[in-house]
Write a protein that binds this DNA or RNA. Structure first.
Lengths: 344, 344
DNA sequence: CTGAAAGCGCTTACAG
DNA sequence: CTGAAAGCGCTTACAG
């Protein structure tokens, strides 16, 4: 790798001058600028970003801490960060906490890994990152996990209640309202819901949005139509069987994620209930599998890419002082209509 | 962030001495070592890796270039790299080429992005990475895409024929042999295959392994039982319909990926053919969707994690000169038996 | 056993 | 418009 010093010698100027033309700073005569640029290009010179970063103490790299990269939502969020980073000539340094195999879906247990998490963040900090993006594997609070640091930190697919913190989240309430509304507009009145874990915030929020629509349209929600499952396929299946074998089975089910929705489809298949003619089903997440269920699942797309992109953008807004106040953004979801829900 | 200089002052020694105890190099009296370490710990000191990297010209970070991070195989490979990196106190800097939206599955078109690819690699090089891991989105040759560089580069989920190159791949042939053998041992004789793109190496290799088993067991392969599709769901479906509506339909189908296998399941469902009683199906890839098809798909697990781990390990074997010769490794796949293939 | 000093490749006041 | 020099935070011969 050729250095700035060598370029300077070849161009018969000082390293300062080379630096000036490279960074478009200082004033350099057109003539020497041209000469330097020629040498730079012909030798394919690239500044050593390590040296640059040491000198300027801005590294142009963002540190990404992902709770588990194999969880379905992570890739698309990282893609969003990547896009921003690429467009703005930054770098991305990634740390995978690998929490899935450690705590499964007992999300509150992250606290057990507090030390590890903070250690990884310190490692990132020692690499002089400009800021940190923390990607949760489940949308929930993670207050008091990460120690205060003097670089901006942006949470996504999780959030904190700490007033000084920044996050990019998505809107559970509006879209859940819309799901119920979609059922209602298609003349359904016996509408059931299979919730995720009772203590999960997304569960709570989705229920609130859903319920609000029923209220607004004066449809009563029979308590027997409310099931609480645990986000997984088997439980979705079990709840659906209970629902569908009841004496007044629903004609529409909102399953709060695609896995449980797939369980509902399985139950319907076994009970010979036709979808969507006899039963409408809407899931949540738009995971890959939702395209390959039978019938293809109507579901909700979470703006993962945008969340990642905005998170990276937020970091640099703070770094560049373009924005003093904290960033707390909530992005909208989109209903993906496929074949499991009737349409007007 | 506290620096080595401040630690030195606090401990009343020179920075050299602090450096010696930090790196366990040089000889330091037990007494001063203890004193230094105490200060280091109480102040939570961490070496600035940027400065360290500039000085030693070894950055302890590996550059990962992934053709597209949202492609199903990427995450697990990155997880493998991550694991190695974490265990060995290295960093991982990631670049997503985002090729999926640019070239779809016209893989040969990577060549159009030659400049972009090399540019990203130069960017990584300017960040002083110790080596580069290139993750393909499809297992194929990518000769002549990446310019020669003076750092080790390791290909995975793709490979090159350049003699000087290193790659970690997986074994298509053995596992395909095993698939055919599984069918045969379960008394199938009318065995069909739905191949991927004709010009894809994995297609070719999987076919070879498959055919070898039929030959070894003296089962003739009716040319009508060989279908060529294009890796996708719709084509898998179409080929299966042709196969199953033919006058001598197969009782077993090897679909060369899970998407096409899902298409086969769809065809069977529509034609009221029971699986696995009347038709056995085996896919390939063990993608998430394979757990949620109906019935759950018997398929092949590719050792993605291990590929990533070995790739990272390979980089540092080369860096540390523990290994002079080139690394070309081929890892084994595993048959995941679920519910679409009969068992003895 | 310990420290002064050079140097990694840059940037940036400052002087001319 | 141009350059000499200091300095970012480390490591590492070298001298004592």
């Amino acid at each position: 790798m050729i250095t700035i010093k060598e370029i300077a010698q070849l161009a018969n100027v000082s390293v300062a001058t080379v630096s000036y033309v490279l960074n478009n700073t200082g004033s350099v005569s057109e003539e020497t600028r041209k000469r330097v640029l020629e040498i730079v290009n012909s030798h394919n010179y690239r500044a050593n970003v390590v040296a640059k970063s040491l000198r300027t103490s801005i590294s142009n790299t963002v540190g990404v801490v992902v709770e588990d990269i194999t969880v379905w939502n992570s890739s698309e969020i990282i893609k969003g960060i990547s896009k921003y980073v690429e467009q703005n000539n930054k770098h991305l340094i990634l740390t995978d906490l690998g929490l899935l195999s450690k705590i499964g879906s007992n999300f509150q247990e992250v606290i057990k890994y507090r030390e590890k998490v903070n250690n990884e963040i310190k490692l990132l900090l020692s690499a002089q990152v400009d800021g940190i993006i923390y990607i949760g594997m489940h949308d929930r609070e993670i207050d008091n996990v990460i120690d205060k640091i003097n670089k901006p930190i942006m949470y996504t697919y999780c959030y904190t209640n700490e007033s000084s913190s920044n996050y990019i989240s998505y809107d559970n309430i509006d879209i859940s309202y819309k799901i119920a509304e979609t059922f209602i507009k298609n003349k359904h009145t016996r509408i059931a819901v299979i919730c995720g874990s009772y203590d999960a915030k997304p569960s709570y929020k989705r229920f609130c949005g859903f319920k609000k629509a029923l209220d607004d349209y004066s449809i009563t929600l029979d308590p027997a139509y409310i099931k609480t499952a645990n986000w997984d396929y088997e439980q979705g299946y079990k709840c659906a069987v209970e629902l569908l074998e009841g004496k007044n089975p629903p004609t529409a089910i909102f399953a709060m994620n695609d896995l449980m929705a797939a369980g509902v489809l399985k139950a319907a298949r076994e009970l010979s209930i036709n979808i969507p003619e006899e039963l409408s089903v809407i899931g949540f997440d738009n995971r890959e599998l939702s395209m390959f269920t039978w019938p293809a699942l109507t579901t909700v797309k979470i703006p993962l890419f945008e969340m990642g992109y905005n998170a990276a953008q937020g970091i640099y807004q703070i770094v560049n002082r373009k924005k003093i106040e904290n960033s707390k953004h909530i992005l909208s979801c989109e209903l993906i209509e496929r074949d499991t829900a009737t349409r007007i």
